[in-house]
């Protein structure tokens, strides 16, 4: 039962990784890489490492995604300043 669960999670993670790498839209890519981390935290829980699962859930899917998004928004802001000049 738990094996089937892990296989399904793994397939979703690999699909998300492929989307993150291939997607033309950067926002989609960033969100997909957050999804990978979120699902990885479930797998850590199954592997009985709750400490790691907590860290991964808070950092991998929360803060890393936000840091990426902040960087993206800064890039867009620089673009806008060029357009204004």
């Amino acid at each position: 039962m738990i094996t089937v669960f892990i296989i399904i999670l793994g397939i979703i993670m690999i699909l998300a990784a492929i989307i993150a790498v291939m997607s033309k839209n950067l926002l989609t890519a960033i969100i997909s890489s957050g999804v990978i981390s979120l699902l990885a935290s479930i797998i850590y829980l199954i592997l009985s490492a709750p400490d790691v699962a907590m860290t991964e859930a808070a950092i991998g899917s929360g803060l890393t995604t936000i840091v990426f998004l902040y960087a993206l928004s800064r890039i867009k802001k620089i673009n806008k300043e060029i357009d204004d000049d």
Partner: peptide, 14 residues
């Protein structure tokens, strides 16, 4: 794309 390279790095990390 530089962003894609960083995303690749974080996937390797996971």
């Amino acid at each position: 794309n530089l962003f894609k390279i960083v995303i690749g790095f974080s996937i390797i990390d996971t």
